[in-house]
Write a protein that binds this DNA or RNA. Structure first.
Lengths: 148, 148
DNA sequence: GCTTGACCTCAAGTTAAGTTGAGCTTGTAA
DNA sequence: TTACAAGCTCAACTTAACTTGAGGTCAAGC
């Protein structure tokens, strides 16, 4: 058997749980890289599994592929990510996660208030009325409902 | 001036902070309703503001329009939502929110562990390896990274 | 040496949630 | 009564993240 160091796209797909077409797609987006055999088939180093795993985790956290790409770019060109690199990324993403969590919490608390309090006349509900307030404040400024 | 009970699409747009085109769109999706003037222009009852507000809140919470539609369907046909109805919806959505929050927390804690612990060899990282484990467990079953 | 399954490329399709534009109609204020 | 802002419909475009399909190549086992 050939050394296990090189993986075909199918093998990567199976081990990572990501479809072959998605791997192709990630490649077009510059998120992963491969070299080709003489017969033009993709071959991946084992580190691609790390990358794909990172990509999936980040997506799960709600980061766009573009964002993930940017983060991965920050890694020294073509280098297999070290623990330092990973550390950096996960710290950054952890912060993003924290932000998202607190945003959601604010919303939830808003809803909770709406349920618990007497505001159920709806018309006085703080959440419900943010919109209206915005409108009255003038522009159609598309501010999000949540305070940032 | 005519009684303020009926709103034009433009007025709804302004008061709700939602674009006219979005209101049209919501209507095609059955999320809001209007009747027409003899000249075929939309007129809305004031309760549309409630509906739109609910829609926006739910979206903010990460619920899809389809999901919102389903929830709104559960309200008695064509009735203006009462405080009871709203209560029901917000309770349900609050639960969804809670779930989302705890999902994110799990992910964050996973990341945090990865940062703090010695697992930074990456290869032993619990997050990183969920994929691989899945692959080994057999199918390409597209399970999400997070436990539910 | 042939069959078969894995690969390859490239174009087009998909879903969500709208936006944009064209061409035409209403409604209202001067 | 006329101008012009606001409405109307319908089709097409947008972005993200892929998937699907067509048409053709590669490689490995029998």
């Amino acid at each position: 058997m050939a050394p296990v160091t090189e993986l075909t796209v199918g093998q990567v797909a199976q081990r990572s749980g990501v479809a072959v077409s998605a791997l192709h797609f990630y490649e077009t987006r510059g998120l992963i890289r491969s070299h080709r055999t003489s017969g033009n088939q993709r071959r991946y180093g084992r580190d691609v599994l790390r990358r794909v795993a990172i990509i999936r985790i980040a997506q799960e956290v709600g980061i766009s592929l573009a964002g993930i790409g940017a983060a991965l770019q920050s890694l020294p060109e073509g280098r297999t990510p070290t623990r330092e690199d990973w550390n950096l990324l996960s710290t950054a993403w952890c912060d993003e996660l924290d932000q998202k969590i607190s945003q959601l919490k604010k919303l939830r608390d808003g809803l909770t208030d709406c349920i618990g309090c007497g505001c159920m006349s709806i018309d006085k509900c703080p959440l419900r009325n943010k919109d209206d307030r915005l409108a009255r404040e003038g522009t159609g400024a598309r501010r999000l409902l949540v305070e940032r």
